[in-house]
Design a protein around this nucleic acid. Structure first.
Ligand SMILES: [Zn+2]
Ligand SMILES: [Zn+2]
Ligand SMILES: [Zn+2]
Ligand SMILES: [Zn+2]
Lengths: 174, 174
DNA sequence: ACCCGAATGTAATATAGTAACGAATAGGCG
DNA sequence: CGCCTATTCGTTACTATATTACATTCGGGT
């Protein structure tokens, strides 16, 4: 019973993360080259740090890592690198967490919905099209024009649900 | 050309706000009485402050007001009152703004979508049902079970669009 | 009166984010 | 090459947001 593997399951399930991260970095570099933007050492390292896991990291957590590796140790160092990545579509900011996560699908037009697992803390990007459409429509009923939307879900991923989560999601495994 | 007045237009359009705020406060008091929760002076005043406008207010903005009126002047005073209101469904927290807004529909489903006007800063609550359904469904495709969703839209309300906003929304008004 | 738990107040601290400014650096050009 | 300019990087200092810990007060039951 294969469920649509749109990348969500791919994020939460065990996988060859070396490959996963490496590919995202390559795509990022290529993408930036096309835009004439510079992937400087701090920026590159910042992206690599975010790519080490599928979790979202706070700016200060990233900063600690950068400082330990010889980069600057003041907040703007991290915030600037992160803002650069976000504004070039290589990372996302999670409003709910005041944190940042690497984008795994650079190249697509990206303002996805985010799925945050409360158990493993991983963050997946989900296609926001239908959700955004529903929101745009309900807003339009009241004469409101949506320009930017924040869509973030907190919940339980399939992997965590199967492990120790509630059995309702894994009845066949009991 | 009446558009569905589900409360969105009612929030952004000019209206008898005295009545609007008063009714929300009464409903809140009644609701709390039914729950056996106490609407103490600080809590009541905090709700009144939030109800003065349809904007979202930061905790420190509320705190300044409370302090000026003889309540405590330390952050926990505001945060506790705000948390109480939120947990009892009388106010909402806006993740995007790190701010709080009074709930205008206490008693209804308490996890609405929020529409934030970038021009007048007012915040309206929109029915989140369809949006939440779309999100739940796209998440389920990846095996993710949504437990809580944050849905916040930034944009332009009808009133602001008609006044000086972009003409596309008010072509007949030119 | 006495006790207890909830609510309120304080100080202190933690976490998140920005402003302002100078030093290093990459490219463009005489 | 040497020079100029825009970008990037680093620092200091500061603002904003939020929580922990603990003392005091207040309401209600005995
Ligand atoms: Zn991976
Ligand atoms: Zn998980
Ligand atoms: Zn009103
Ligand atoms: Zn408006």
């Amino acid at each position: 019973m294969p469920q649509t593997d749109d990348g969500i399951a791919a994020t939460f399930a065990p996988h060859d993360h070396q490959e996963c991260a490496h590919r995202a970095l390559d795509e990022a570099a290529e993408r930036l080259a096309g835009q004439g933007a510079r992937l400087t050492p701090v920026r590159r390292r910042t992206l690599e740090i975010l790519l080490e896991s599928h979790r979202a990291m706070g700016a200060y957590e990233v900063l600690d890592r950068l400082a330990a590796e010889g980069f600057g140790r003041q907040p703007p160092v991290a915030y600037r690198a992160l803002e650069f990545l976000v504004s070039h579509g290589l990372a996302h900011r999670l409003q709910r967490l005041n944190a940042f996560a690497a984008c795994l699908h650079p190249g697509h037009d990206h303002h996805p919905a985010f799925l945050i697992c409360r158990s493993c803390d991983k963050v997946a990007e989900a296609p926001a099209g239908p959700v955004r459409d529903a929101l745009t429509q309900v807003a339009a009923q009241g004469g409101f024009r949506v320009e930017r939307a924040t869509i973030e879900a907190l919940g339980l991923c399939a992997t965590c649900a199967a492990q120790d989560g509630d059995p309702a999601s894994a009845e066949d495994g009991a």
